[in-house]
Design a protein around this nucleic acid. Structure first.
Lengths: 193, 193
DNA sequence: CCGCTCATGTAAAACGTTACATGATTCA
DNA sequence: TGAATCATGTAACGTTTTACATGAGCGG
């Protein structure tokens, strides 16, 4: 699958961003602007895209028959478009979610900096790593708050609910920040003079 | 900085891939082919690129005066080129390594799958996650072997050596795989019927 | 002789970022 | 009245992937 409109001459092979957006539309109807906001805030930890890319991908999802929209008079020169996932879109998304993962192709600039850090001034390195430590401490604190809010209403247990998968991604965030923080503290410790 | 050849009309703003490659050349002279191999094997955990991209970036690094090469007769229709970093290239790399990190823009497909997993068949989801678990168990085992080899020769302690930064990236890999494995085991557990 | 490794390159297409462009409403 | 938020779009540029193209040397 991951293909749409078998009969048409030009087919768009739906990419990961397409599924990221479709995943938001499968939850509730959204304007392109709202999609861009959600790409920053709750989704931002594991995926992101700018509004220019989002508008284009929404258009392609509609062409593919996986999303549709209704127009509303909006502020500004253009009409507001409220997008939602079609039944075909939901089915494709469900199949994609459980399909085999491609081998990941990581791009982690922090590790690349450390790998070349033997050449750098240790004091400057310590400063950069301390800034990163603080950024991630704030990030962890945020995830812990969100987790507490979830658990106050009862720990989610049913993996076929939105609430559960949201909770699962927050737990991942906590684990991820915790291990990096430990590693950063150790690294900064080795840079003491 | 991160700019080169101030006088020329067109300047190439060196990108992260440029620094990734320069970091390899700063350690030892390499052919483009070898760079591509190293981008898979030791660097692959935190950065990667295909050979088409690498050859182009090497050319730009030379134009920028940050790398140079000497030609050797190679197999096949083209000469072999042995690239190395220039003094200017090393200086730029050292400065870049400790400069402030841009805010990361993550692209984690595993989390995106889980986020949409509430729509998917739990059994299919369990299968996908189990495959990922096995892939990462193998990866952890590999990092543990590498760490043992490092520590057999004495734990690296000087952060201005290549040996130390290599060791640091391996420790990061171990921590990273361990937390994901814990999280995956918990997640798969919630999908038992 | 077949396939693998070594070795470099080009071209086209797809993907992603940044800048430009417009304009109503709401809040200070 | 000025800034922020809501709202959509295009154009240019830069990055990344995929496919095409070539060919020597080595091991089975």
């Amino acid at each position: 699958m991951a293909r749409s409109d078998e009969r048409a001459g030009r087919m768009w092979r739906v990419n990961t961003l397409g599924f990221a957006i479709l995943g938001l539309l499968a939850r509730r109807p959204l304007s392109g602007y709202r999609v861009a906001q959600l790409m920053r805030e709750p989704i931002g930890f594991f995926w992101n895209a700018g509004h220019a890319q989002i508008h284009g991908t929404l258009r392609k999802l509609v062409e593919a028959g996986w999303a549709e929209y209704r127009t509303e008079p909006g502020p500004g020169p253009h009409d507001k478009k409220l997008y939602s996932a079609t039944a075909a879109g939901r089915a494709a998304l469900a199949e994609w979610a459980a399909s085999p993962l491609p081998t990941p192709q990581p791009h982690d600039e922090l590790l690349l900096r450390v790998y070349n850090g033997w050449l750098a001034d240790p004091a400057a390195m310590r400063e950069m790593l301390t800034a990163e430590l603080e950024r991630r401490e704030a990030s962890l604190a945020h995830y812990l708050t969100v987790r507490a809010e979830f658990e106050a209403d009862g720990t989610p247990e049913d993996p076929t609910t939105q609430r559960f998968v949201d909770y699962a991604t927050v737990l991942n965030g906590i684990g991820s920040e915790r291990y990096v923080l430990d590693w950063l503290r150790w690294l900064i410790g080795t840079l003491r003079d």
